[in-house]
Design a protein around this nucleic acid. Structure first.
Lengths: 237, 237
DNA sequence: CCCCGTCTTTGACCCAGATCAATGCAAATT
DNA sequence: AATTTGCATTGATCTGGGTCAAAGACGGGG
């Protein structure tokens, strides 16, 4: 089993020493609530490419990603795929009011999640304004991200799309692991294409173009942002 | 002043007789909370094309649309525009954790909103799990819509985009005003284009095409879904 | 070390939708 | 009635990105 590109230490099993404790939903829980929450949740591992849940599955669990990377995507009946997001440790997945998830999630490389059943969690959260406010915050953050992504999908060129993706992905990794312009890309070119509303060929050509222009260097398993200012200019424009 | 295409009665001024009482955030408030809430909010009218708030404005208010239609959109520095949603009576607008809204909202035709300041509302909501849960529900609903729209923007053809928009818009109006296949379109072709990630010419041509195919009839100020089954098939595909 | 399968890159060509340019059309203005 | 104004439609042409096809490149298993 190859080591995860976005690794986080997972020493113990409890919430107290959870790697993700500080920046996930749980950040809003006090010591006692945390103890209670611990009872509701359990850690589950998935191998690379395993499906955590599918679009049409009844949504009976929430997930908190502890380690690894996931992709969230929707499929059209004819197989066209749109990736709606990549998930990093600390991200909360599965919020929904519907009976079905409405999108699928699978593992990009091995993944560890903190899984908890919707119903008991609902009861647990019901009278905890702190937790509810925290969940609101997360939902609104995702909504903001979703709207930004609509602009990208509807109104930006291939080059802008790729640059925006690379800068955004780097920024998320920086938040998680500290500053670096080396950007590991655990997802495939096809994943990137389906995230940006492009084909794999266009993504590949655009990477090459950005490299020719001296903006990035293509490395095995990722890229390096050589001229991060120009990349950011493309992303903003 | 021409009458709104999506009119709702606005007899009195209080919450008790608010046209939108039953299906907005306020649905989660009891009689007493409602009385308190009434103190925080006030009704404001906007003329056609007026801006309710802009992308870079500090987000000091929330809004509940009472009457009319609004468009929410983001602008790129060079003027490209992506409409991220149309707002109908009962919709809640302005949820954000950021200091700035991040998108603009303006009136399509005359509009009446129920406006309330963020800070006092925050204090009011802080310890009301019912209200917090309701807001969660709304945020998650919008998130689901946003994800559906990502699929549309990233992976669908012009014809599918237009059909999906028409069917979706009809369904929202049906919910509000009862079943009908006559679909008023208060927004301009340019608005539709900026919502679907197309140009105005392509929208126009696609309308004409759908009419030639007998799926819609183009009326002044809207369309009629002549063959709603075929429109829905295009929307689902 | 060498297949073999999978993923990525590159090239040649094509087309859906963009762009550019009139023209149509109806409400508002004189 | 004539004129302006602001869409919306239509036509002609162009092009960014898609499609199809063929090499690389790379890692895993024997």
């Amino acid at each position: 089993m190859k080591t995860s590109l976005v690794a986080v230490d997972l020493h113990g099993q409890g919430c107290a020493d959870c790697a993700v404790r500080g920046f996930s939903v749980c950040a809003s829980l006090d010591q006692f609530e945390m103890r209670e929450f611990e009872q509701l949740s359990r850690r589950v591992n998935f191998a690379s490419c395993e499906t955590i849940f599918a679009q049409e599955d009844s949504s009976s669990f929430f997930y908190n990603l502890l380690d690894g990377v996931m992709r969230l995507y929707k499929l059209l009946p004819d197989g066209r795929r749109q990736i709606v997001g990549f998930v990093l440790p600390g991200d909360f997945v599965g919020m929904t009011t519907d009976e079905r998830h409405g999108f699928s999630a699978d593992a990009i490389g091995p993944v560890t999640v903190c899984q908890f059943a919707k119903l008991p969690f609902g009861r647990f959260a019901e009278h905890k304004p702190n937790l509810l406010r925290r969940m609101n915050e997360l939902a609104v953050q995702e909504l903001n991200h979703a709207r930004d992504h609509m602009v990208l999908l509807g109104r930006r060129s291939a080059e802008e799309k790729v640059a925006t993706f690379l800068v955004g992905w780097r920024d998320r990794l920086v938040e998680l692991r500290g500053p670096s312009n080396v950007v590991p890309l655990p997802m495939s070119r096809q994943d990137i294409a389906d995230y940006l509303g492009l084909t794999i060929e266009t993504v590949s050509r655009t990477f090459t173009k950005l490299e020719r222009e001296g903006i990035i260097a293509i490395l095995p398993g990722g890229v390096s942002l050589r001229d991060s200012a120009r990349a950011e200019a493309l992303a903003a424009a």
